[in-house]
Design a protein around this nucleic acid. Structure first.
Length: 321
RNA sequence: CGCGGGGUGGAGCAGUGGUAGCUCGCAAGGCUCAUAACCUUGAGGCCGGUGGUUCGAGUCCACCCCCCGCAA
């Protein structure tokens, strides 16, 4: 029996479990992998493979890395010659033009890291944390020409735990993609799964995350909001503030909502148990920093930070944007 | 060679030419009903490496190794 021919489009780590599961499927053959071009990255600006390329190199399947998909006849012809049945697209990073989407017999599927139609766009995982949601999940849709608006084939919900951060949710949702992509794709091809249009009236969109979104504004943000931002933005872009002319990142924190500390002031608070904590005043409540990193140094927990910088905190307790 | 910060006892930091310190941890002892609290004492550093300047260098110079922030 002929296996279904699938072309996989993906770039980031999020796409790896999905690709892996397609490769393991008995009824599917991944005959090409498309990823973003290698970019200069890291401390020395070295050209680095995308996570998908790094993974794919182990399998021996060729990786295509077109600079652009628009007006790229060579690439279009190449895809046509592969005679694909289906595209699977996961965090690829580029919009795939309509004419390319028409190449495969069954169109293209996409795994999205939110419960569509909520959080269409590029940063659904961060957005659900920023909003303080208590549940999220993945949605597998059939791609149409509009971004994240295609009809839904499958939704899997999971709860967001208080302890979840971008990293934990990212891993959970990526794994779900891997768990469900192959069966959903096959059911879709068999037509045992029918696409259901999204309720566009309930759609919401992710704001694009900018570097500057990580800058903490102690005056206008509440402890609760900052806590959610830390959960969403760690490790990128990270939540930071300025202290003594240096960038101070808060990597992990909790909220002390009944505290009334001076806004933007850091202080060492001793609990009755004798435990010392770092409290920072916000618009409402205090943020209790548990893990932090100062520019040029490694990350450290609050206790370690107090041991080394305790005196300095008392000298210059004010933080600035 | 993209820009920049840093490598000092187990951890985090101070110390910029002249006998190596602080907070924490650790060990022993004390106080206490008790303690992550408090008091005493103690162990533990060839100050990343190599070479150089100097009467004398964590402390100045050169090169090398390693860690990290920005950037992507």
């Amino acid at each position: 029996m002929r296996k279904y021919q699938v072309v996989f489009f993906g770039t980031s780590e999020f796409a790896v479990p999905t690709l892996k599961s397609l490769l393991e499927s008995q009824e599917i053959e991944v005959n090409a992998i498309v990823s973003q071009p290698d970019r200069p990255t890291g401390r020395h600006q070295e050209l680095t493979s995308t996570p998908i390329k790094a993974f794919a190199e182990k399998t021996g399947i060729p990786v295509l890395q077109p600079e652009s998909l628009k007006k790229n006849p060579d690439f279009e012809e190449l895809l046509q010659n592969l005679e694909p049945d289906l595209f699977v697209v996961v965090s690829y990073g580029q919009i795939i033009p309509k004419r390319l989407l028409e190449i495969p017999k069954f169109g293209a599927l996409n795994v999205h890291g939110s419960l569509l139609p909520r959080y269409r766009g590029a940063s659904p995982i961060q957005q659900s944390l920023l909003s303080g949601d208590t549940q999220t999940g993945i949605t597998i849709i059939k791609i149409n020409e509009k971004m994240d608006e295609g009809p839904i084939l499958f939704i899997k919900r999971i709860p967001i735990e208080e302890t979840d951060t971008f990293e934990t949710l990212y891993a959970k949702l990526a794994a779900l993609g891997g768990e469900f992509i192959a069966p959903v794709a096959l059911d879709y091809i068999d037509e045992t799964l029918g696409p259901i249009p999204q309720d566009h009236s309930r759609a919401t969109y992710c704001e694009k995350i900018e570097k500057e979104d990580g800058r903490i504004n102690w005056k206008v943000q509440t402890a609760e909001e900052i806590h959610n931002r830390i959960r969403a933005f760690t490790p990128w872009p990270g939540c930071f503030t300025m202290w003594n002319g240096k960038r101070l990142k808060v990597l992990k924190a909790k909220v002390q909502s009944d505290a009334k500390e001076k806004v933007g002031m850091i202080k060492i608070h001793t609990r009755e148990s004798g435990e010392k904590e770092l409290w920072i005043g916000t618009k409402h409540g205090a943020l209790v920093a548990e893990k932090l990193q100062i520019e040029g140094k490694g990350e450290m927990d609050a206790k370690t930070f107090i041991n080394g910088y305790g005196g300095k905190i008392q000298e210059t307790p004010e933080l600035s944007n």
